[in-house]
Design a protein around this nucleic acid. Structure first.
Length: 322
DNA sequence: AAGACGAAAGTGGTTGA
DNA sequence: TCAACAACTTTCGTCTT
């Protein structure tokens, strides 16, 4: 039967994708490089980690029946960074053979070398192991309280591992570093949360958290651009139960503000709040400055100042607002 | 009475000598 | 390393709805 032919592996997409993603979506520079030893793609321009952990986790062939799927899927749970030993508690053999005794491909081999190195390291530094275990449970707690999706938690966990290797946690609280990596991960993935929100959810004060965050950026040599006010809108709008037309209008206002240079040097949170305020009045779903300031974690004064600027510079008729 | 307004002084981070 | 600086916060009295 026609549909039983599973002999044509669909692997052509791999090479294609690789050549396409040379440009960094963040800074636009064309200097994305592959770091095979660490399994990452990193932008040479801004340091953004585009994808980490690039093990081909897809099944090898297409499967057309459940038995086939069982037979062809790769064995075992996926590797995860949020588990303190990467979910890998078996010992890796020193021979470069797979279970059926075949030689491994070079890529697979370097991957195994990496894991083996990790295993030895973590055995030698058992204190680091304990640190990680504690950190990962804190990360889990924090992230679920803030409703952070899994992929971002994984990125956060990866950042934490790096910061431990760089000895950043020494003399600082685990909680503070965990919170900092989570905050950073959210921003990298363009789902930023206000610093205050993260600080409140952890038991770390805002100042410490900010210090850890900046240290993280410096030590790991990563650059995270200022957050885009637009990335806050959907969250804030739903917290304020505003309709989607208001959201759209808000985004529109923010774009126009940016175009005339009104946003430079301004706190993205304040801009987001002010734009929501204006849009909410325009579309007759008014919220008070107080309410908006609260969800955006800025003061009413800031909302006021930004919104005054927006109204003036964008030429919005104040009379038609009321 | 609640919301909006704006002045004035304080805070923490950045920048440039 | 230190001072100047810009943006934001805090606080508070006044005006508007």
């Amino acid at each position: 039967m026609d549909h039983m032919r599973g002999d044509a592996p669909e692997r052509s997409s791999v090479a294609k994708v690789d050549s396409e993603i040379r440009m960094c979506p963040e800074c636009g520079s064309n200097s994305v490089v592959e770091d095979l030893t660490r399994g990452e793609r990193v932008c040479g321009g801004c340091g953004l980690v585009l994808s980490d952990h690039r093990i081909d986790s897809g099944a090898e062939w297409r499967a057309f029946s459940s038995e086939e799927a069982d037979a062809r899927s790769r064995v075992g749970a996926p590797l995860r960074y949020t588990v303190h030993d990467k979910g890998l508690s078996t010992v890796i053999d020193w021979r470069d053979r797979d279970t059926s005794g075949r030689k491994l491909t070079p890529t697979r081999r370097s991957e195994i070398y990496r894991l083996r190195k990790w295993q030895i390291r973590s055995r030698v530094h058992s204190s680091m192991d304990r640190n990680l275990a504690q950190a990962m449970s804190e990360l889990e707690r924090l992230a679920s309280q803030l409703g952070i999706p899994k992929p971002i938690r994984e990125l956060s966990a990866l950042l934490y591992r790096k910061s431990i290797i760089k000895k950043l946690v020494r003399g600082r609280s685990i909680e503070a570093m965990v919170a900092a990596t989570l905050y950073a991960a959210c921003r990298i993935r363009k789902k930023p949360r206000p610093l205050d929100e993260v600080a409140d959810a952890s038991r770390v004060d805002k100042k410490k958290l900010g210090q850890c965050y900046r240290l993280l950026l410096r030590s790991l040599a990563i650059k995270i651009p200022l957050s885009n006010p637009i990335d806050y809108i959907s969250r804030f709008a739903s917290q304020l139960s505003l309709s989607s037309p208001v959201q759209l209008r808000t985004v529109e206002i923010l774009k126009r503000s940016r175009d005339i240079g009104l946003t430079i040097g301004r706190d993205p949170l304040g801009l987001a709040a002010a734009a929501i305020y204006v849009a909410s009045i325009m579309l007759d779903e008014r919220r008070t400055q107080r309410e908006i300031a609260e969800v955006a974690r800025v003061t009413e004064v800031t909302v006021r100042n930004r919104y005054k600027e927006i109204v003036r510079k964008l030429g919005i008729d104040t009379m038609s607002l009321a």
